[in-house]
Amino acid sequence: MEPIIRMENVNKWFGALHVLKDINLDVQKGEVVVVIGPSGSGKSTLIRTINRLEEIQKGRIVVDGIELNRDVRNIDAVRKEVGMVFQSFNLFPHMTVLENITLAPRIVRKWPREKAEQIAMELLERVDIADQAEKYPAQLSGGQQQRVAIARALAMQPKIMLFDEPTSALDPEMVGEVLDAMKELARSGMTMLVVTHEMGFAREVADRVIFMDMGEIIEEGEPDQVFSNPQHERTQAFLARILH
């Protein structure tokens, strides 16, 4: 089957800094891929190239059959299909929760307000915060904000969801509620690319774990295999550090 994300020999530099080195990665529809690796290894950069928040200098990326090149039509098309959740939530502080969620469907997908709001309420229901719809982001807890961010991304009805350390900015007691929402999403068959250090989450829902270091994919495989029996010594060193 044709993979929904295909990266071939992807290379990226920030000035002289070589951040992504010959990345080859295929993600199948419905697959949940967890990316781990030390700080600065290029995890964020990797997933940000998929919705073109970062431009690549060499190689090619095809998302759901759309070639991600400098054609603005393709960039727009890919961004409509790919949702993203950030470490720092990035909710729009001047809009209510409901406005945050309905904004993009209304102006990008051109849905009427009623339809957008109805779908927004369903999504809020799904992430369990329907009662907060009229509040402003600043009035919510971190965990609630991140669930709103997930609902906001889902409102565009994406085929792929990207998560960049969605729980790292949260107080420990709020991590669970966000992970639950993500697990529920994974079970519903969404294609997901998740950068996270939550090993429990990876073991439970990931189909595949990718270990990155210094801009390269060092090792990949099923969670059990990577966590319990890492092949590469850099993976071993990293896991030894993180699991204690």
């Binding site: 431009e55 690549i56 090619r60 070639e67 090149n69 400098r70 054609d71 603005v72 039509r73």
Partner: peptide
Amino acid sequence: MTEAGPTVPFWKDERKLG
């Protein structure tokens, strides 16, 4: 270089648009 390819017309090319 990303393979912009001959298929991208200049009025849709992000960089050229700028």
